[in-house]
Write a protein that binds this DNA or RNA. Structure first.
Lengths: 361, 361
DNA sequence: TTGTAGGCGTTATCAA
DNA sequence: TTGATAACGCCTACAA
């Protein structure tokens, strides 16, 4: 192949040989442009001292050539990428996306970038995506695991890559974990009903194989035990953590022969669905049904009467997860593994009606 | 530093020198373990033929050493990473997260992984994140740009990295773009009202500087023009594409002295907010107010009377964006730049009431 | 089928 | 302050 030494060489090159000509400039190009050595350019790039006139020249070259540092090469050499992987089950969930926001707030300030991956509650995809992140040499990982297995996470830890779990704990795994205190959250919510005199209390909980479902249900059961109340199994309904199941399960409740007088719904989307079902069926809150929802604070701000809502500390979870990971990444192994169970808040609205108890009668 | 040649060397190393000892195995290690050469291992890794007995040995070594290919090194060498960057303004928006799902469906099948980044409608962050993706040497990018500037996107294209824009067009930029036909979407929706005899039609639209806002408003204006109707500026309300503004702007409408008889709301979250305001204020749909929402099909499935909803082709956008990018990445420049405007669907519910027109009277 | 050797773009060591 | 040079882990002619 011959190049004509004319100005349209480039044009021709562009039109016929894309892929052959080099598009992005390297340090070498900058060195050539400035007449300096590669080492000097690299030094400048990493904040070292260079002579004023060289600095100017280098900066000109960078601008002119549109030079960008190749992070692949850099990562290969330095063995760190200043990148954190975030792995969650779904993007269609306000809880996780809010947490991600807070994680990024902290990480960005510390000059870390993030790679977000989603595994759609598919365990095999979780393994694949985790592998992807490791192979990309992220410096650390924050993830909400499915929980069915943990060997793949153990392997990552064995490679000395810090992992912080959020939302779901794996008790077999020695790993930093940031959680909501789900069981006490449910306990306290249901306790409000009980104190108010309710005895038939329904719960719409999540899919059976998810950690948070079990925890929230545990709180529901425990508070019944502590108050010496029998549990009617038919008042425990499993949803899918989505709007539809919140809607359908609440309808199931109100259509029962002997419906509950109070219902506790255990996540954001299902709370939305449940409120819709309540509206559709013209159920008056709290006269006909007392109600406590979960996470969906928007609803509480917007609906009258305001529903009581259990609010998870998403900001706390995000910040703490980020800070914990930051510490681990800088080699601080103090208190490993540390498990934080953050408390929820119960925002009281006007959706709980005190019932006559037998004593009152 | 001296190493004792005993079995507890490793223990000591692990305890005191993490970072010095090598944690993850390389091809070299696999080669050493098997007694084969680096080249052979690499060949095996890339699907080449090796003797049966060697294959077994290699696989054993990989398992034993927990070898993972270093994608950084590979990308550096091959100049492709089999990774696509996705850059969007926010995760807290069903529209984008649904599209991402569909993009990933296609990409995963083609052995591409994705890196999701969010810029929170912050233009500087958009530039940073785009740079991040480029520096990570992604093979292509799908993004919903803010739209305030496009130099940074042009620069990426100049480096011969394919970019596909979604949701928002930048007319100054030669770039493949997949859009909703927003202006006809709004046109058709509002036309339903007009046909039904409505003359005072309110619209709750998005933030002024977003592309889709302008397009949807354009449809609203155009249909008025085509039907020879005057536009009352007070019936055009700007929201923030969030639940709160949907709620507040709808309340503003119903509290007007001369309120509209029909309202068109132009995105998912605002539709939710508007419906809430309608419920709270005991407005009967469609008797007191005719209503068309946007994207929020959940609402239509769940609320009675079912609101009419403009539904964007999220699946279509996601799939087409992925396929277009896939083509560009394999070097196919046919029809560059191609702009697709996908049609919306108007799902008719029971939320539009025919009004008496003057002719009827 | 297997191995040798050079290079991808950086960083980092050590002289100059 | 600057420059020559050897890695980092992988891929790929080319040779054996």
């Amino acid at each position: 192949m011959t190049y004509r030494n004319s100005s349209d060489t480039l044009k021709i090159a562009k039109r016929f040989m894309i892929g052959v000509i080099k598009i992005s400039a390297t340090i070498k190009d900058v060195a050539k442009y400035t007449g300096l050595s590669i080492a000097t350019i690299s030094k400048y790039l990493n904040g070292g001292n260079v002579l004023e006139k060289n600095r100017i020249k280098i900066e000109e070259a960078i601008r002119e050539l549109n030079f960008r540092r190749n992070e692949l090469a850099r990562g290969l050499k330095t063995n760190q990428t200043m990148t954190v992987g975030i792995l969650i089950p779904t993007l269609e969930n306000n809880f996780f996306t809010t947490i991600i926001s807070h994680i990024e707030n902290i990480l960005l300030k510390n000059r870390y970038s993030t790679i977000i991956c989603v595994y759609r509650e598919d365990f095999n995809l979780e393994k694949e995506k985790l592998s992807f992140l490791v192979n990309k040499k992220v410096d650390g990982i924050i993830m909400a695991p499915h929980g069915r297995d943990w060997q793949h996470i153990q392997q990552v830890l064995d490679q000395d890559i810090p992992v912080v779990l959020i939302d779901r704990m794996i008790k077999e795994l020695e790993c930093d974990t940031i959680l909501t205190d789900n069981s006490n959250a449910a306990y306290n919510a249901v306790e409000q009903f009980i104190i108010g005199g309710h005895r038939r209390i329904g719960i719409i909980t999540g899919p059976k194989d998810i950690y948070t479902t079990a925890e929230r249900l545990k709180g529901y059961i425990r508070v019944h035990e502590d108050y010496g109340l029998e549990i009617d199994e038919s008042l425990i309904l499993y949803g899918n953590y989505d709007v539809e199941s919140g809607y359908s399960q609440l309808e199931k409740f109100i259509k029962m022969k002997n419906p509950p007088t109070a219902v506790f719904v255990t996540n954001y989307d299902m709370t939305l669905g449940a409120v819709m079902a309540i509206n559709e069926n013209n159920i008056r809150i709290p006269d006909q049904l007392s109600f406590i929802g979960f996470d969906n604070l928007q609803l509480a701000r917007v609906i009258k009467p305001a529903p009581s809502i259990v609010v998870q500390p998403m900001e706390g979870i995000g910040k703490l997860a980020a800070k914990t990971l930051l510490n681990r990444m800088k080699g601080d192994k103090v208190n490993f593994p540390s498990v934080y169970r953050l408390k929820t808040k119960l925002i009281i609205g006007d959706s709980i009606r005190p019932l006559m108890t037998e004593i009152d009668k």
